[in-house]
């Protein structure tokens, strides 16, 4: 790692100047490639009212490869596994260097609004989501209350 790429400086500046509603992404004081992220659970989703902590890391060859993102707060979601890894195409084969930290986080927020049990990562969660959606949603709300709300 030589000097910090301008791309990262630029994105950081923009995130600070024009923050995304419902999302906070703050670079670590000492590591400009590591961001502390908090995503608020979208309205009308089982995650409403929750504050979800994520970590985001820009690898050496960013933006030619995707940021690495994962949930730190436990979450009950068919596309997010027990380690917080996220199944999202733009983080994998559909990454494009024209995408940014901002767009990635918006996509993750959208994934909370629209879980996709047909493309699962957490298999048992996805299974329940398919066979008994109302129970799955109850679980998701319960986990949100238990892990993502501060009292």
């Amino acid at each position: 790692m030589a000097a910090l790429p301008r791309r990262i400086i630029k994105e950081t500046q923009r995130l600070m100047q024009e923050p995304v509603p419902g999302i906070s992404a703050v670079p670590s004081e000492t590591n400009a490639r590591y961001f502390h992220v908090i995503v608020t659970g979208p309205e009308d989703s089982p995650f409403e009212g929750g504050l979800f902590k994520l970590e985001l890391f820009l690898p050496e060859d960013y933006p030619m490869s995707a940021p690495k993102v994962r949930f730190i707060t436990k979450i009950y979601h068919p596309n997010i596994d027990r380690l917080g890894r996220i199944c999202l195409d733009i983080l994998k084969d559909k990454w494009s260097p024209a995408l940014q930290i901002r767009t990635v986080l918006l996509s993750i927020q959208a994934l909370l609004s629209a879980p996709n049990p047909d493309d699962p990562l957490a298999n048992d969660v996805a299974e329940l989501w398919k066979v008994n959606e109302s129970e799955a949603i109850r679980n998701a709300k319960e986990w949100t209350r238990r892990y993502a709300m501060d009292n």
Partner: peptide
């Protein structure tokens, strides 16, 4: 930073 640069690297 300058604005009139490459939209990927800003460099």
């Amino acid at each position: 930073l300058r604005e009139d640069t490459c939209t990927l690297c800003f460099d």
